[in-house]
Computed example of a mutant assay.
Amino acid sequence: MKALAKKFSTKIESVKVDIIYATITGNNELLANAVANEFKKRGQTPEIHEFDDTDIFDLEDSDIIVLVCYTYDNGSIPDESLDFFDDMQEIDWTDKICAILGSGDKFYGQDYCKAVDTFAEQIKKTGANLATSPVKIQLAPDESDAPAIKKCVSELLAASN
């Protein structure tokens, strides 16, 4: 009975979570929503934004920043994320906890989710804590991707405590 009481008395502190995504096919919007839903299950209230609508300098109050991108034309990052990506060179995120996820198509071989890796390197340059390994999803997220999404969110929240 004590173990059960302890389980329910453990409260995760609320943190400010921002999820920023880019999508052409809708797959990354689905992925961003899946990540947001996992945060909600854990008592958090994430905000979801598209790269086009996000000024990186407005994320100053964020505790956790999750980026979700696709890979375009020969392994490039999405056009709508270029300004954000470039602005990452001007920021210091040493107090931020971050993750990068993205969907792709293995049909593209060595370019599969390459932008995810490119963003991961850029995140590291900001000084942020990349608290989880990059998550790469084949096409649209489905139930088989749930464990990777849960693990990502768990590691982000653990790093924030």
Rank of each mutant, 00 (worst) to 15 (best):
M1W: 10
A3W: 09
L4G: 09
A5R: 14
K6E: 10
K6S: 11
K6A: 10
K7D: 14
F8V: 15
F8R: 15
I12S: 14
E13F: 11
S14N: 07
S14G: 14
V15Y: 11
D18L: 11
D18M: 11
I20E: 05
I20W: 10
T23C: 00
I24Y: 07
G26V: 06
N27T: 05
N28P: 00
E29W: 02
L30G: 10
L30N: 10
L30K: 10
L31K: 02
N33I: 07
N33E: 13
E38R: 03
F39R: 06
K40R: 14
K41D: 12
K41W: 12
R42W: 10
G43A: 04
G43P: 02
T45N: 08
P46V: 09
P46S: 12
P46Q: 05
E50A: 14
D53M: 09
T54L: 04
T54M: 06
D58Y: 08
E60Y: 12
S62K: 05
S62H: 06
S62Q: 08
S62Y: 01
D63T: 04
V66P: 10
V66C: 12
L67I: 03
L67N: 06
L67C: 08
C69F: 13
C69I: 13
N74E: 15
G75C: 11
I77S: 14
E80C: 08
S81M: 07
F84R: 09
F84C: 04
F84E: 04
D86C: 04
E90V: 08
E90W: 06
I91R: 14
W93N: 03
D95G: 07
K96P: 01
A99F: 02
I100Q: 03
I100N: 02
I100D: 00
G102I: 02
G104K: 01
G104C: 02
K106P: 06
F107G: 13
F107M: 15
K114Q: 12
V116Q: 07
D117N: 12
F119V: 01
F119R: 00
A120H: 10
A120V: 08
I123P: 01
I123D: 05
K124Q: 04
K124G: 04
G127T: 01
A128R: 05
N129Q: 08
N129W: 01
A131F: 00
T132N: 12
K136P: 10
K136T: 15
K136N: 12
K136H: 11
P141V: 05
P141H: 00
E143Y: 07
S144Q: 00
S144M: 01
D145P: 03
A146Q: 09
A146R: 14
P147R: 00
P147W: 00
K150F: 08
C152V: 03
S154T: 09
E155D: 03
E155Y: 02
E155N: 05
L157V: 09
N161H: 15
N161V: 15
N161Q: 15
